[in-house]
Simulated assay, not measured.
Amino acid sequence: MAETLLKVENLKKYFPIKAGVFQRTVGYVKAVDDVSFELKEGETLGFVGESGCGKSTTGRTILRLLDKTDGNVYFEGKDIFSLSRKELRSIRPKMQIIFQDPYSSLNPRMTVGEIIGEALVDHKIVSKGEVKDRVLEALEMCGLAPYHIRRYPHEFSGGQRQRIGIARALVLNPKFIVCDEPVSALDVSIQSQIVNLLCDLQQKFGFSYMFISHDLSVVKHISHRVGVMYLGSLVELAEKHELYKNPLHPYTKALLSAVPIPDPTLKRERIILQGDIPSPANPPSGCKFHTRCPYKKDICSQEVPKFRDVGGGHFVSCHLV
């Protein structure tokens, strides 16, 4: 049984809303609101949900790229937010991120070799004489040629740039990588190459991934478990086959009903959600989904449902289950 690598408890991240001449705080955007989960060594946990539901903010807060509002994050048993700057710096190489946009996440003034090797030099992981060898090794693992080390980002296609971003994360030999929609900006054919590359690297080195995406078919292919987010909160979390075969939350059912089926003879009942997504600055009372839920009852608007295990590691936050 794999050990727990990452533990997130009741994580919250609120952004203040400023107004007036004196820029007083008049409210908060509740981007991440009471999220809890665990991630084991060598596991991929997929995160899905509509745009603005807090997936990327959750990933960045876990890595302490953003400060938390409340809650705890434990990595290898250490509380990330209680570490000093020196202690945090020492574990930074173990926690990496692959950014969503392969065009803006690479410094256009640096060569590929400098981009990938920068952290090796900064953290003094290897001697200066060994940096080039490590960079070439990372390039080869990610399907790039040795001569690419001297080129600049503008000389590459989107797929190649994303491979450079992956190589930059891998060169430090991390244990945990946040993949923030790493294939959303790429063509479909390139997407499959990048996803298969991530799977192969995980089998070889035992990385743990938090894989954030809108594409439910990609998430199903790469993930071991899948979490569904709505308006800053996790509403369902289960092993991938269980979630896709037996979704319990009405929001999860609506998401899965929108996934295209490759067989034109098969028909699926499409669940169309009514109304707009509420503002995260002013979320509804009780269950956040009740304003769009076709099965809502009185209790749904009055009481926040608990995020609980209903059996076999299938967590759901719904009064109707």
Rank of each mutant, 00 (worst) to 15 (best):
E236N: 10
L266W: 01
D276Y: 05
G311E: 05
I177R: 07
L197S: 07
K245G: 15
H314Y: 11
C199T: 10
V219W: 02
R150P: 00
V316S: 02
A238W: 03
K132T: 11
P294Y: 10
A238G: 05
S223D: 09
L136W: 08
K132P: 08
I212M: 04
K220A: 14
L144S: 07
L144W: 06
K175N: 08
V121A: 13
K124Q: 14
Y209D: 05
P260L: 12
L65F: 12
E76W: 00
I190H: 07
D276M: 13
L256Q: 09
F37M: 04
P280G: 05
P260M: 09
I98V: 15
L88F: 14
D101H: 06
Q193K: 13
E242F: 00
E269I: 00
K267M: 07
G113W: 06
I91H: 05
D200Y: 00
D122I: 15
I194F: 04
E50Q: 12
D70Q: 13
L136Q: 12
V304E: 15
E155Q: 15
F15M: 01
L255R: 02
C53S: 15
Q202H: 03
G227C: 03
E114Y: 02
V321S: 14
E269S: 12
K306G: 04
S184K: 09
G46F: 11
T61P: 12
L172H: 01
V35G: 04
I17D: 06
A138H: 06
C53K: 09
E114V: 01
G206P: 05
C53H: 11
S213L: 02
D133P: 00
C53I: 07
S51V: 01
Q193E: 13
T57F: 01
P174I: 09
K296M: 09
R60A: 01
Q191N: 09
E3P: 00
F15Q: 00
I98M: 09
E9L: 05
A167H: 06
I271Y: 12
L197D: 08
R168V: 03
E140G: 01
C179P: 07
S301D: 06
E269G: 03
A167T: 11
H241M: 10
F15P: 06
K240V: 15
P174W: 08
R292Y: 11
K240N: 10
R92F: 00
G113S: 05
D34S: 14
F315Y: 15
L6F: 03
V26Q: 09
V35M: 01
I97G: 05
T44F: 07
L201P: 10
D70V: 04
G52Q: 05
V73H: 02
V171L: 09
Q100A: 07
P108Q: 06
